[in-house]
Nucleic acid binder design. Structure first.
Length: 506
RNA sequence: GGCGGAGUAGCUCAGUUGGUCAGAGCGCACGGCUCAUAUUCGUGAUGUCGGGGGUUCAAAUCCCUCCUCCGCUACCA
């Protein structure tokens, strides 16, 4: 089994912010989970480096566009390990392999009679470098202006078009037969409604700037963004060589995207692919946006969240955990210091971290740092093991649908039950009355801790490893298998410091 | 305007096909334990499940209507 997951490629017009980090971490979590399932995973991210904005920005700085994007792309590359993410490839749209690939896709579409040359007409604002619909304009003294007051003029530009309109019925049919291929459900509805509202042919080339992939056999045109950018998902697995191993193993992909670019991924992209005779993506998941202390995040407000700052302040796993525990994946969320502290303290420090700490130090003090497997499980033990199985099943079901928050909650419920189990069994009393039973209890709860750490590993990999190290448990190359069965070998316990220090209120 | 989604305890939210569905976490109150990062365990309170009407033996769950909020309504990325 293989699994191909992608982030969008990030536009190189600014430094990365929390939104980029969020998407990348989401993919990392999903990739790690799929590896635990035993799948052969390919995790791709990269940068989108073409377009008029980049060209203009470069000129402003007296750089050629390539020099400019080289600088900006590095910021995205460097961020990945800082986020604790392990990718398999990083693609840049300015690479040769990608230029070849997107031109090949273009030619394939041309060959399949999906592209024609015509004119794009519309109200164009030179100041905004953008086309406007008449409904977006206001008329003053017979002339049209945008809402910002920019004058517009009727412009006719030669452009290649993609026959998107031909794919309306096929897209509807495809999505009606593949209802889980766009998640969350509400996004699926949105996309389907949009398609049912009718599709017009899509302008896919530009002549007004040069910084892009040249259209094959007509260098006056560069490819417009969505052909160039989306094609990266194919490039990375070797397109146009469709006989290569990677391509055959990994396609179709699961795309994780922000809700703002859902349409490009869920309408244009599958249409391009089908038109080129390629299978559409397996799944497109659209996530939401973050606000900062209830405020919309924007550069002009000056409340942009820098991933480096926030992770240095709270810790990598703490932030990874917060981002995916706090908010249902797909919804918008609010980034607030108070909520972050509450979440970390309640779930990680008090619930999970404390369970690890109370058990590991108890075994060290009272059982020579060593636990032997136990055969004599009583009803209470078995109930807890049953719960482990149930929570594991829930966890997998949720993770398979990218409901990361629900998956985490399932594990937290298991951990809570573990804490209650310890209180009920009170090994500190058994120490005086029944040492054999004490060791059984410790062995069972240690199993719960280990399995919980494994389930949380995709979310908090560094901390999970630290915890597993305390119990001398190696997760490298681990695959889910008979997950709820107890460990059969002796467990030696190492000394440890608290894994999740509490966040103190300021 | 059109289409879609949502309004459930102080807060954030679960509630499959109508019948322990009135819940969880956090917060709050009280009590217990002391192995543990002053952590944990137990008990409890607060809600006319947005308003109104209807279908049904039975509705948070179906239908109608009204109110409020949100998303989408195509070529910046």
């Amino acid at each position: 089994m293989s699994f191909y997951i992608t982030t969008p490629i990030y536009y190189t017009n600014d430094v990365p912010h929390i939104g980029h980090a969020y998407t990348t971490i989401a993919c990392d979590i999903i990739a790690r989970y799929n590896k635990l399932l035993g799948k052969d995973v390919f995790f791709l991210t990269g940068t989108d480096e073409h377009g008029q904005k980049v060209e203009k920005a470069a000129i402003k700085l007296n750089l050629n566009p390539k020099e400019f994007v080289d600088k900006l792309s590095v910021n995205f590359i460097n961020l990945i390990p800082f986020l604790g993410c392990e990718i398999d490839d990083f693609i840049r749209t300015t690479e040769d392999r990608h230029i070849k690939s997107s031109q090949a896709l273009w030619k394939q579409l041309e060959k399949n009679n999906q592209i024609y040359l015509s004119n794009y007409e519309g109200w164009y604002s030179i100041r905004d470098e953008a086309y406007y619909l008449e409904s977006e304009l206001k008329k003053i003294d017979g002339k049209y202006f945008t809402n910002n007051g920019s004058p517009v003029e009727w412009v006719k530009e030669e452009s290649y078009f993609f026959k998107l309109s031909e794919w309306e019925d096929k897209l509807i049919e495809y999505y009606e037969n593949n209802q889980n291929s766009i998640l969350p459900k509400t996004r699926y509805n949105e996309v389907l409604q949009f398609i049912k509202g009718g599709l017009k042919d899509l302008s896919i080339s530009r002549t007004t700037f040069n910084w892009g992939v040249p259209v094959p056999n007509n260098s006056k045109h560069v490819m417009y963004v969505w052909i160039d950018a989306l094609c990266n998902y194919l490039t990375a697995i070797g397109y146009p060589d469709i006989n290569n191993k990677k391509y055959n193993k990994y396609w179709p992909a699961t795309h994780i995207v922000g809700k703002d670019i859902l349409r490009f991924h869920a309408v244009y992209w599958p249409a391009f692919l089908m038109a080129a005779g390629i299978e559409p993506p397996k799944r497109i998941f659209a996530h939401g946006w973050w606000t900062n202390e209830g405020q919309k995040i924007s550069k002009s407000v000056g409340n942009v969240i820098d991933p480096y700052n926030i992770i240095n302040e709270y810790g990598l796993d703490q932030i990874r955990f917060f981002l995916f525990r706090e908010v249902p994946f797909g919804n918008d969320g609010d980034f607030s210091k108070k909520t972050i502290a509450n979440r970390i303290n309640a779930d990680l420090s008090n619930n999970f971290g404390n369970l690890v700490q109370r058990i590991s130090s108890f075994v060290i003090k009272n059982n020579n740092s060593l636990l032997k497997p136990s055969e004599n499980l009583n009803k209470v033990d078995k109930a807890l093991i049953n719960l482990l199985q149930n929570k594991y099943d829930e966890y997998c079901n949720f993770m398979n649908n990218q409901q990361i928050d629900r998956a985490i909650k399932s594990v937290l419920e298991l951990i809570s039950a573990g804490n209650a189990y310890v209180d009920n069994q009170a090994p500190w009393l058994l120490k005086k009355t029944n040492k054999i039973r004490m060791e059984e209890v410790l062995f069972v709860i240690t199993n719960i801790i280990i399995k919980s750490s494994i389930m949380l590993y995709p979310i908090i990999p560094t901390s999970s490893k630290k915890i597993l190290n305390i119990f001398n448990y190696n997760i490298d190359n681990y695959k889910f298998d008979n997950f709820a069965t107890l460990i059969k070998h002796n467990i030696k316990i190492n000394n440890s410091e608290p894994i999740f220090p509490r966040i103190l209120n300021d």
